[in-house]
């Protein structure tokens, strides 16, 4: 169990199950003004795995997720201390190019948020912005490949010029995932990506997550315990800004070590 202090982190223990550590967070504190949202969180996230962050509303899981691509930077009152390394590189180093960092870390939000542009331009937006692709044919290829990877191509290949907002909710969310992967990120952050979707659309996203994990490292915030159990290999439970327990998903849902975790996953948390 990790309760936040460095001394509690066991080498090769629950902190990270393998040697393929990609994201290494140590002693992370986050404040919104005077209010502390995260307390000394230390968590390792493995490469090409899905890690679920679970916990009641306000526990800090989304705050933690947003630390990973420095989305919290846009909140004036937010201050962060501690250390977050991706591939050994401190992402809060002043010399880091945040735009470039975010091209390596895609993000998908709770509500699908396609840009008010065509389906094609939604996907092409990132590669254009980052100047990764200028050739027209190459861009077409990239858009198609991204939509195929997002499991959307067959459904909308004849609607590429229609507004992204004209798609169904589930299709919009997969369009957002296509947009995220079009810039070839290493990591995809998902903040409750299915909470606004019906069960069919949710199943398609979960199927997609399962496929994407072979190429990407995925961190997902979810309120659905069953979803965490289905899609992730490791699960971290947050409570009141503390990381209470992290471990293999199977163990967290079969016999968690911490009583607070058990109370939460069984619906006894009052």
């Amino acid at each position: 169990m990790v309760d936040g202090t460095e001394n509690d982190i066991k080498p090769n223990g629950n902190y990270s199950s393998d040697n393929n550590l990609l994201i290494d967070c140590k002693n992370v504190d986050v404040f919104y003004g005077d209010k502390q949202a995260l307390y000394n969180v230390s968590l390792g996230i493995n490469e090409k795995e899905v890690t679920s962050l679970i916990g009641p509303s306000g526990c800090g899981k989304s705050t933690f997720l947003r630390c990973l691509n420095r989305m919290n930077d846009v909140i004036d009152s937010c201050s962060i201390s501690g250390n977050i390394k991706i591939n050994g590189e401190d992402i809060y180093n002043p010399h880091i190019d945040v735009v470039e960092l975010r091209s390596r870390i895609g993000m998908v939000f709770q509500k699908p948020n396609p840009f008010p542009k065509s389906v094609f331009d939604n996907v092409a937006y990132g590669p254009r912005l980052h100047g990764k692709i200028t050739d027209k044919d190459e861009m077409h290829h990239k858009v198609e490949a991204s939509l195929v990877r997002a499991g959307l191509w067959d459904e909308i290949k004849d609607r590429l010029n229609e507004p992204g907002t004209s798609l169904s909710g589930g299709q919009q969310q997969r369009l957002c995932i296509a947009r995220a992967i079009a810039v070839d990120p290493e990591i995809i952050l998902m903040d409750e990506p299915c909470s606004a979707l019906d069960p069919i659309a949710t199943a398609k996203i979960e199927e997609l997550i399962d496929e994407l994990k072979t190429n990407y490292t995925i961190v997902i915030v979810t309120h659905s315990m069953q979803q965490a159990a289905r899609v992730s290999q490791r699960t971290a439970f947050f409570h009141l800004g503390n990381l209470i327990e992290v471990g293999d998903t199977e163990n967290i849902f079969r016999s968690p070590e911490n009583e607070q975790t058990e109370a939460y996953v069984t619906g006894r948390y009052g």
């Binding site: 016999s255 968690p256 975790t261 996953v265």
Partner: peptide
């Protein structure tokens, strides 16, 4: 209910 942890056991 989709029981979890102690409930699942």
């Amino acid at each position: 209910r989709q029981p979890m942890a102690i409930d699942l056991r």
